[in-house]
Simulated assay, not measured.
Amino acid sequence: MNKSTLRWKLLKSILFTALFTGILYFLFVQIGLFLHPGFVSLWFSLLSPLFVMLLVIVLGSYFSYKDTLSIRNRLEDISTQIITLSRGRFTEKIKLTEEDEIGRISFELNELTDKLQKQVTSLQNLANQKADLAEKARGAAIIEERQRLARDLHDAVSQQLFALNMMSSASIKMMDRDIETAKSQMVDVADLASKAQVEMRALLLHLRPIHLSEDTLCVGIRKLVDELEKKSGVTFHLTLDELPELPGGIEENLFRIVQESLGNALRHAEASVIRITVKLKKKQFSLHIKDNGKGFEMNENKKGAYGLDSMQERSDEIGGQFRVSSRPDEGTLVEVRVPLEG
């Protein structure tokens, strides 16, 4: 038995109590024999203290076991509640049974749960308000997005097209002199053209509207995947639970995270298979996006390059938990968990 547990400490107290009781009883019997010789037999005076000690140990152990069992169960409820809170589920509470010290701790923990739930609700309300404000500022955002797209087109696709032009021109000139070298250069041209095509599809993905219009989140994801599957050649596997009606701000941020993640998988990961899972369990929404791409080393520079900071901010705005795990040659996993109210 672990000597630091509550039961061991209680058992140790019972053993000391039994020993002390047996000694007192033995002294009491000896005083009785001294004052009244023949009061009890010698064997009784020697064995009865042992019987009393055994009785104290048995009864004490029985009642302490019952009491500590109840205390242990209540402490385990508190431990389970703390783990539940750490996982972002703020709807479950501890059942209050007694108004003692543990009961007061349980009550305070339930109060903390309510406060956390209210904070999450406030964050989600702010996200909805921000979505309304974002709608009004969409004109400016469109201009900014066009400027960003122009930069990306210049930095990536435009340079690749320039390289294609130069390489194809060189191959045409080389055909008359060295046909094998020309063939090798044309293979490089085809490879570069394929990369430029993937780059363009990823950029076009970011041109999609960040709002879902009249579609639900799951319908929007299915439409997005259907379009990408036809154009990119990537295989998608969808597992989408039926969801209740979600506030617009939450759906828009989650959809934008999906867009950003899929864009990364197409543009950087060179993935051939992408799995998207949406689940709802005990008022806890979870989104998993897993690809089999080339992965990357997790560090601050990569986070900024792949737009992970933006996805983290969107998750924070709706009171969610965002996590990315990736290793070279092992693909990338994006996870978002959001507690839902009511």
Rank of each mutant, 00 (worst) to 15 (best):
L6T: 13
R7Y: 13
I14S: 06
T17N: 06
A18D: 03
L19Y: 08
T21R: 05
T21W: 10
L33W: 01
H36W: 14
W43M: 12
S48V: 03
V56L: 03
L59N: 09
L59S: 10
S61Y: 12
S64D: 11
L69F: 11
L75N: 04
L75Q: 04
E76C: 10
I78D: 01
T80M: 12
S86D: 14
R87F: 04
R89L: 12
T91L: 12
I94W: 07
K95G: 07
T97G: 04
T97N: 10
T97D: 08
D100T: 07
S106A: 15
E111W: 11
K115Q: 13
K118E: 15
Q119I: 14
L123N: 00
N128F: 05
Q129C: 07
A131L: 02
A137T: 12
R138T: 12
I142E: 15
E144M: 13
E144A: 15
A150E: 09
D152K: 13
L153D: 02
D155W: 03
Q159W: 02
S169M: 10
S171D: 00
M175E: 13
R177D: 14
S184G: 15
Q185C: 07
M186Q: 05
V187K: 14
V187H: 12
V187N: 12
D188N: 11
A190G: 03
E199V: 02
E199Q: 14
A202R: 02
L207N: 04
L207I: 06
L212E: 01
C218H: 13
C218I: 14
C218E: 15
V219S: 14
I221E: 00
R222Q: 15
K223F: 01
T235M: 11
F236E: 12
I250W: 09
N253E: 05
F255G: 08
Q259I: 12
Q259E: 11
G263P: 07
N264H: 11
N264P: 00
A265K: 00
H268L: 07
A271G: 03
A271V: 10
I274C: 10
T277R: 11
V278W: 02
V278H: 08
L280K: 10
G293K: 02
K294F: 07
E297P: 08
N299F: 04
E300A: 14
S310F: 09
S310N: 15
E317G: 09
I318E: 00
F322T: 00
S326W: 03
G331Q: 08
E335S: 13
P339L: 02
P339M: 04
L340N: 09
